[in-house]
Design a binder for these strands. Sequence first.
DNA 1: CCCATCTTGGAACGATCAGTACAAGATGTG
DNA 2: CACATCTTGTACTGATCGTTCCAAGATGGG
Lengths: 191, 191
Amino acid sequence: MAGRKQFDVDEALRRAMHVFWRWGYSEASIDRLTEGTGLGRGSLYGTFGDKSALFRKSLERYAQTYHPLYEQALSGPHPSPSAVVAAYLEVTLNRIADPAVPDGCLLTMSAAQFPAIDAEGQAMVRAMIDRVRAVLERALRAAGAEEQEAAELALSALATNKSLAVLSRTGFSSADLATVAAVAARVPGRR
Amino acid sequence: MAGRKQFDVDEALRRAMHVFWRWGYSEASIDRLTEGTGLGRGSLYGTFGDKSALFRKSLERYAQTYHPLYEQALSGPHPSPSAVVAAYLEVTLNRIADPAVPDGCLLTMSAAQFPAIDAEGQAMVRAMIDRVRAVLERALRAAGAEEQEAAELALSALATNKSLAVLSRTGFSSADLATVAAVAARVPGRR
DNA sequence: CCCATCTTGGAACGATCAGTACAAGATGTG
DNA sequence: CACATCTTGTACTGATCGTTCCAAGATGGG
């Protein structure tokens, strides 16, 4: 029954991340987390700490999984700023289309529920979003956008990412999501 | 102490709406709702029914308050599809800038937490979003957009609205929000 | 083989959840 | 003034919340 750990810590964390992702922080009860991970209460608390700590580790796990995909897609070279936005949103669309993973986006769902999350968790979400924003901005500059244009388009692409998460949760079709992404990638430079 | 109602029903509903808006369905506990409305449990349940019913009435109240603003802004005439999008997003920005009201958007926050909301509530949120989408589409057609363009821009503007709600909750500055709206309104017709 | 160390599942904790029951008090009608 | 009706605050329900505790069992080092 016990002695050495009976489960894979990283796999358990991946499942816990999915529970937070699917249900949001408030609705991700310890019961749902134990059921989702297959762990008992003792193992869960002994390995990851309390719910807030587990949530933060889930955020880290999320970043470890998806940040590299964004980095890679944005690493270019890209012929134009529009291509950068398109590449970025394609990663998002692919994640949303993945049936092995909940709808939406853990970061966006968490951001929408900020009052339910403690200060450390909020700060972490904000920092992760800012990191993506910075990567986007750098890629846009590399693709030839001037400074202000890069800042604007990075923000705009980030916003589209958030909207895709919300719309997918609301049941919008993948065709609609693709349309949103396509229109966003169509955005021109400054007038 | 009692006899005839000691409070204004509509004002109480407005406050309950703010509680759901600020906290989201899960975190809007009955205690928070009683505190936010000033009503006792008895009055709350006697007047509005259970939490789910109160939530649905709050959604209605929300629509009553903001739908006319969107209708009016979209009623035109508008010189171009872009102007329609700009007018729509301006209403959203004004609502977000209103300090008397919580950040974000009740519909968007609710959509992000769908698993926490029962089927009736979900259906209502979806219906309300679809209604805005239809109004937008009609306004875009009236401003000269062809059918497919109108559909695309309506969806895109709706998406931007959702992203503004999420970003404002995450603490993005009003300048950033204005930028997102401005870039979204800059979108051209089909290529 | 013994024992300190660790893991595990389940029991139990107090707090809070949504919802109900009800007595006390206020009202308008007769 | 009396009485049926309605409102209100509070006490209470059972369920669930996050968290802690702990005995039982498994492990590996001495």
